[in-house]
């Protein structure tokens, strides 16, 4: 994500906006007519995969699939480089997801067709960041945003990429997390160097009223060796209807999903809840990325 300039991000988001009626099924598109797109998912993912499939079909493209990893040649010991060399001879574009960090970058060295990274390892998931940015732009605003990120800020890759991307637009950032899961100091320092105002705290107190976008993330139990400690943290970072009483009227709540219980169900019915809308925005965003990578849109 660090490789993208503000102009490039804006261009992707502009394109997504143009394609939104197609994503909604209101308009038809043949942009990917006659194109074959390979989905290589080397690890399970429902949302990312389905939203890519939706995006491709809405644009009239065809899909070929790896099938289950167990049944494919990957299990026969073929390396990723060879798999990519072969598949890139079949398909016009490859969307891949792989458990190892940097695998998409490597794939692009061996592929004769464009690669879209649908998430590799624990660090990069650029299409998620694009859809987060698109959601923020559609539902709030990108420029000088007052954003609060909450939950697991240490391991959550979506919040790390989002910080970098938002810093291109200027922002005020508040990080809410238990001490064990604080935003890495490298990123905090990086933000401050870019003149981003950063505030760190461990509870929602005094935060909600001053927030335009609240980006929630999941706190995973396996991060806490002590189950009691996990319960405590979980309850402290749970977003409830009560907490939202002091919210600014235009607050928007985002979550990359799946959520466990960090957002109480009563929040879903408030005008602040934006996470299901966010899931939908994954479709026009991925349509834009596909169309731009294929060169069917300038």
């Amino acid at each position: 994500m660090k490789d993208f300039s503000r102009e490039e991000i804006d261009h992707v988001l502009d394109t997504a906006e143009k394609l939104e009626p197609v994503a909604r099924g209101i308009e038809k598109s043949r942009l990917l007519d006659g194109k074959i797109i390979a989905l290589l998912f080397f690890e399970p993912s429902t949302r990312t995969r389905l939203s890519f499939e939706t995006a491709i079909q809405r644009l009239g493209g065809q899909i070929i699939n790896l099938g289950s990893v167990e049944a494919s040649s990957v299990m026969k010991g073929e390396n990723l480089a060879d798999t990519i060399r072969v598949i890139s001879k079949y398909a016009d574009l490859i969307v891949m997801r792989h458990p190892q960090d940097g695998s998409a970058h490597m794939a692009s060295e061996f592929s004769s067709v464009p690669i879209i990274n649908g998430g590799d390892g624990s660090i990069h998931h650029p299409t998620q960041t694009f859809l987060d940015l698109y959601t923020i732009r559609r539902e709030s605003h990108l420029e000088g945003l007052k954003i609060t990120m909450a939950g697991d800020l240490k391991y959550g890759r979506t919040v790390h990429s989002l910080c970098h991307a938002l810093s291109l637009y200027g922002a005020e950032m508040t990080f809410v997390s238990p001490p064990e899961l604080r935003m890495p100091s490298e990123i905090v320092r990086d933000m401050e160097r870019r003149n981003i105002k950063v505030r760190e705290t461990d509870s929602f107190e005094n935060v909600i009223g001053d927030t335009e976008v609240l980006y929630m993330t999941r706190v995973q139990q396996e991060r806490f060796p002590d189950p009691e400690e996990y319960e405590k943290v979980k309850n402290k970072l749970k977003l409830t209807g009560e907490l939202l009483e002091g919210a600014a009227p235009d607050l928007k709540i985002l979550h990359p999903l799946p959520r466990v219980n960090e957002i109480a169900p009563e929040v879903d019915d408030t005008p602040y809840a934006c996470y299901f809308q966010q899931a939908f925005y994954g479709v026009p965003t991925r349509m834009a990325l596909l169309a731009l990578a294929m060169g069917v849109i300038e």
Partner: peptide
């Protein structure tokens, strides 16, 4: 977990 540390 880096791909450069694999057998690729």
């Amino acid at each position: 977990n880096c791909i450069s540390n694999s057998t690729e």
